[in-house]
Design a protein around this nucleic acid. Structure first.
Lengths: 340, 340
DNA sequence: CTGAAAGCGCTTACAG
DNA sequence: CTGAAAGCGCTTACAG
């Protein structure tokens, strides 16, 4: 990078001291109007831009929020980042982002790198590989503000912004039951992730509440976003002697994979089999029939996470007590569960 | 943020000088093995993390890439960022990202903020409001590496990574023509954006090449991602005395909106009207019929942009000549143009 | 009203 | 093999 104008350059040209330039630039009352004008005019002329790096070092404050997400290319995480950026920008914070690619090792190295960069705090959604949380524990021990969002860590007493996945899973299954379904399958995700485990538990609880016995054959592990493997999985369920009449999938892509398998056999949705997904992605309203889903606002979650970070920063209390915020979800009913 | 361990702390505890600690930490040959071991052991024990901010100031190099995009929540931009991050991470760069929200003013202020943060370079996709490019011109004048991606600025002689939107538009329309369509409508985007203008010009050129007269009624301005307004627009085209038998939309959401309008009138796709979109988003293969599209790899574009930046950084030449890289696109044929 | 000095955390040319 | 000094760009308590 070529030489940027510094306070020293301005001082030299005006034959005054850097201290005076610094003060003039920030409109310090001590400085004479004449000097102020001269400094500001020259600064403008030379396109002076203060060096935030120097400022950060001086103040031990970078005005930067570090974000670690599993992957950029999830629509949900894009909306979360957008929400974070929304409040960060307003408060004069920058965001520095990296993706763990769902790898534990990268998550650890990303965390170290953020600490090295002296971010003022970290907002993270945990990778699905992560089982050891000591890299986060260390942050807490060093009083580095940390907020988990969506994928939190229940072992640590830390800030988190989440949805109630249990309740949401429960709601989804209850909805299927309310449409008369009794043989309800659940295509679940990685149970190492609390969000998936809780959705699973919500499924079980809903069955129980309505006196529907749990059928082991109906609970099947589905990957993340693999349409084809979801389809294949659904095909196996359809081959069971007693096939399901309802499907709750842990995300919308998996749900849509299931729908495709069902449609290919000319089984009617929702009459013969009702399908509900999770997250309510962009395309869920576009497919046919429209996919019922549990909608969660990533934007709100991002805003809340950023605000929680700011709260902690501003709250200089020795004994800050970690918060947990639950963002409400909404059942969105479309043609895949109720004939439109 | 609580006190982080510094080199000074280690020096004090070991009763040696900070210089020696610094050297020991980087395995400088001058330092005795014994000192090295003592330093490294203590550093580990205290969880010493070098302060990158201090380093950046010292070296006038932040190892940070600034990214400015119009909006996070476009799938395409997520993939670009993912591509950038991919090569940046490998080379030890961090990315700092902000979104202009399609606002010229925010783009300008984002640019200033990035310069203040002394990013080593900027990767930007221009907001659709932007007509004045002097904030970017300034970067070039100051030799701050700058790479445009996707939405570039043709007035400036700057690095850019793009697709050939003209050729891609041409290909899309040629494909419709090859399926026997003759009355081809184009739902175009903001012509202030070169990408949209070029797609439009590609449309016109394809018509011309095949001797199809241009019908003004068939070229209509569609917004960005508004499904409903695209639908409404298509309805107007369907009400024309001579309705189109082919539609080329500047993005997939608009194309899908058109498809919905067509389907609601029970007009057959692709037999009566063929539809093709642009970008090939996640959902395009999921809708019914599958939406034909022009696929462009955002990931590749991101990688290329990051590499171009690195090239410029490494190339210390006084007279660096800006590069332009064109990422190939692919016509993806699905059921919306050819009966499957 | 202005300036010299110290310091944020680091590195490195220079000296011993 | 080790240390003191200077400097990256800034701010601010202290002195005048």
């Amino acid at each position: 990078m070529s030489a940027q104008i510094t306070i020293k350059d301005i001082a030299k040209e005006l034959e005054i001291s850097p201290s005076t330039v610094s003060r003039a630039l920030k409109d310090h009352p001590d400085i004479s109007p004449k000097t102020k004008k001269a400094v500001n005019d020259l600064a403008e002329k030379l396109h002076y831009q203060p060096n935030s790096i120097a400022l950060s070092l001086r103040k031990s404050k970078t005005n930067t929020i570090g974000i670690i997400i599993p992957e950029f290319v999830h629509f949900f995480f894009s909306t979360v980042i957008s929400g974070i950026e929304d409040v960060a920008y307003e408060k004069g914070y920058n965001v520095i982002i990296s993706q763990s690619n769902e790898s534990y090792e990268r998550e650890v190295s990303d965390t170290r790198s953020m600490v090295s960069h002296r971010v003022d705090g970290l907002l993270v959604s945990v990778s699905k590989e992560t089982r050891d949380f000591s890299h986060f524990k260390e942050l807490i021990e060093r009083d580095i503000p940390l907020v988990f969002f969506d994928r939190m860590c229940s072992e640590l007493n830390a800030n988190s912004v989440v949805i109630d996945d249990f309740e949401a899973g429960f709601k989804a299954v209850e909805h299927l039951i309310s449409t008369g379904k009794k043989n309800i399958a659940h295509l679940y995700g990685d149970l190492n992730l609390h969000i998936c485990k809780n959705r699973y538990d919500g499924y079980r609880a809903a069955l129980e509440k309505y006196g529907i016995p749990f059928n082991e054959d109906f609970a099947a592990y589905a990957g993340m976003l693999e349409l084809d493997s979801a389809k294949e999985l659904m095909n196996r369920l359809l081959d069971l002697p007693q096939r399901p009449d309802g499907v709750f999938a842990h995300n919308d892509v998996v749900a849509y994979g299931a729908m495709q398998a069902i449609k290919e056999r000319n089984i009617k949705i929702p009459e013969e089999i009702g399908v509900i997904g999770f997250s309510d992605w962009q395309f869920s309203s576009l497919v046919e029939p429209g996919l019922s889903s549990i909608s969660q606002s990533g934007f709100e979650m991002g805003q809340a996470a950023a605000r929680m970070f700011l709260d902690q920063i501003e709250n200089e209390d020795e004994n800050y007590v970690p918060q947990t915020k639950v963002i409400p979800t909404k059942l969105v009913v479309r043609g895949s569960t109720v004939k439109q």
